[in-house]
Every structure is written in structure tokens, then in C-alpha cells.
Computed example of a mutant assay.
Amino acid sequence: MNPIKSAGYITTRQVCERLGISRSTLERYVKTKGFPKPLKLSATSTNRYPIDAVLAWEHSIINQAF
């Protein structure tokens, strides 16, 4: 996983690269695995994910594994 700062937002592409998954898998994670929903920060922007929420989700998944 790539290190990221714990403030701000990351794109769908960055989330997929970080997790090693496709966009369709990410959409499935949002619907079925409690992954944070993306935000649209302006009318012309692409979806963004709050970094804090992504990190919290990662930690919860890791904790479930143990």
C-alpha cells in the first residue's frame, strides 16, 4: 500500500491502486463491505474519498482478520 497523508481526499483511481482492485470491485465494496461512499466536491469534479474514512476502513478490515 502506498503511504498517504491522513487529511484530504483521494480519487477513485488512487483508492483502486492503493487496494489493488478494479473500479467495479470498489463499487461492490461500497455497497456490501461498508467502504466509505465517495463525495462529489463540486459540480464538475470527479468522485473523491475522504482519506480518513479510507484509512479507518482499512484498519477495520485488518482488525477483523485477527
Rank of each mutant, 00 (worst) to 15 (best):
I61T: 11
Y29F: 15
G34I: 01
I4W: 02
I10K: 00
Q14P: 00
T11M: 05
Y29C: 14
V30W: 01
A65E: 14
I51W: 00
G20F: 13
N2E: 12
T46R: 07
G34A: 03
L55S: 11
A7E: 15
V54G: 09
R28P: 03
E58N: 06
N47C: 12
K5T: 14
A53V: 07
Y9T: 10
S6H: 13
H59R: 08
V30R: 03
M1V: 15
E17G: 04
W57L: 14
D52V: 06
I62V: 15
Q64D: 12
N63F: 06
I4L: 10
S22K: 00
N47A: 11
L39R: 07
I21H: 01
F35V: 08
I61F: 02
I61S: 07
L39Q: 03
I61D: 06
L19R: 10
T25W: 10
N2F: 13
S42Y: 07
T11D: 05
L39C: 09
K33L: 15
P38I: 03
L26I: 06
A65C: 07
S22M: 01
G34C: 07
R23E: 09
G34P: 00
E58S: 07
P38N: 04
K33S: 15
D52M: 00
L26T: 02
H59G: 06
T11N: 04
A53M: 04
S6F: 15
F35Y: 10
I10V: 15
K40G: 11
K5H: 08
F35Q: 04
K33P: 03
G20H: 12
L26E: 09
S45Y: 02
F35R: 07
I10D: 01
L41P: 12
L41G: 11
L41W: 01
I61C: 15
T44K: 01
Q14N: 07
S6L: 14
N2W: 05
I21F: 04
V54I: 10
S60A: 15
R23P: 01
Y9E: 05
I61H: 09
L26R: 03
A65D: 13
R28T: 14
I21W: 08
V54P: 08
I62H: 05
S6C: 14
G8F: 04
Y29I: 09
Q14M: 05
P3Y: 01
I21D: 02
E27K: 08
R28M: 13
R28N: 09
T44L: 09
T32R: 15
Y49P: 05
T25V: 10
K33Q: 14
F66A: 10
L26P: 11
Y29D: 13
K31P: 05
E58V: 05
K37L: 08
W57K: 07
K31Y: 05
L55H: 02
K5Y: 06
V54S: 10
K31R: 11
R23L: 00
Q64W: 05
A53W: 00
R48W: 04
A65L: 13
Y9S: 03
K33C: 15
E58D: 10
V30M: 09
L39K: 06
R23C: 00
Y9N: 05
